[in-house]
Design a protein around this nucleic acid. Sequence first.
DNA 1: TTGCTTGTTGCGAAGGTTCGCATCAAAGGA
DNA 2: TCCTTTGATGCGAACCTTCGCAACAAGCAA
Lengths: 144, 144
Amino acid sequence: MPHCHTYLKKLRDHGYRITPQREMIVQIIAHCGRHMSAEEIMEKVREKTTSINIATVYRTLDLLVENGLASRFDLGNGKTAYATSEHGPHIHLVCRHCGSVTEITENDISASLDRIEDIYDFDCRPYHFSIHGLCRDCRDSMTD
Amino acid sequence: MPHCHTYLKKLRDHGYRITPQREMIVQIIAHCGRHMSAEEIMEKVREKTTSINIATVYRTLDLLVENGLASRFDLGNGKTAYATSEHGPHIHLVCRHCGSVTEITENDISASLDRIEDIYDFDCRPYHFSIHGLCRDCRDSMTD
DNA sequence: TTGCTTGTTGCGAAGGTTCGCATCAAAGGA
DNA sequence: TCCTTTGATGCGAACCTTCGCAACAAGCAA
């Protein structure tokens, strides 16, 4: 469920100004159920107005990430994607050899995150991160 | 302790050719006890020869990462750094608000990594990854 | 040692992201 | 409503990284 207003309210509460550009960007990434690149987001905004610039898109996305309203994904090969936090917390296992991505569930790592929150007083949630390593196929195919 | 020969041997064993450029790059990142940017590595190589190009540095670093001989770190603000695997496995807690970085130890997450290796047959080690979240100071200073 | 095959390099261009700065406009107060 | 303050935008330049391609050279076999 998209909550544009919640997002915008949070931004305002944090002292940021609500501009038409920010409204449109938030609307788009909140309604789109998947992750999107900055370029894609700009094109969507362009369908509504010409008054948008790629630098503004990046700046707004940074803002959302900084405030925990969106997450940034490094898709490898130099691409980055963004999604609202509603996309749900998860972890990607990325094979450093073939680039394959496996999504794992919260349960698999929940205990460790609890531990990190306790010991370091660091708020990990909601989280999105990648663990790089070797998938079974690549490990098997390497003589090492 | 640097093991240039071990690294080069591994590359050769994997079917890659050993060129002067690759030798020098491996030597530099193996002997330097910290992480370095591609630009820094190129400057170091330049002290020995002019026959080096930034694209080659990037390609060699990709190769090392792909084969588990080095790790890539996203330092935020668009910078990337590299270090050999000897730099040791670790995890960074990166505050998405102030950018502060806390390094945590293997113990804190070891159990979860074991679990991931068991269930998904995915080789996480040696590992370097970042968990983004909110440090205590930033959490306290946010009204939310 | 010589020649061949094919992976590697350097170069320039292109792609993606960030930055600096002048202009603009959101938000709040008078 | 109008004015003021100051954060946000658009633009162009700069920066970092990747890509395509022609020339080069590592490694192997003879």
